[in-house]
């Protein structure tokens, strides 16, 4: 499995305003009716992923799931 650049979907509990996109290095933010928010976007490598997770932790945002997504097949893959 390639551990370098990949797209990720990170799901949080709570609704995060889209203006937070810049804080999360240009990930797109989508809020869902079930009261969760999904961050979606490319991350350079594992270090970038962990950096992003730390930012979420520092805000006290409860993490629900982290998924790596394949761009060719838009459905989610378990990571």
């Amino acid at each position: 499995m390639n551990h370098e650049s990949a797209w990720y979907e990170i799901r949080l509990h709570g609704r995060l305003d889209p203006r937070w996109a810049a804080w999360f290095d240009g990930m797109t933010l989508r809020t869902h009716a079930d009261g969760t928010t999904v961050l979606h976007g490319p991350l350079a490598d594992q270090a970038a992923l962990h950096g992003l997770l730390q930012r979420l932790r520092d805000l006290g945002l409860p993490l629900l799931s982290v998924d790596r997504v394949d761009l060719d097949q838009p459905q989610r893959k378990q990571s």
Partner: peptide, 17 residues
């Protein structure tokens, strides 16, 4: 306070670019 610093920074980034 760390938490507010993050919130303030994120807002600054969003407002100013």
């Amino acid at each position: 306070h760390h938490l507010f610093a993050d919130v303030l920074r994120a807002r600054l980034l969003a407002e100013r670019g």
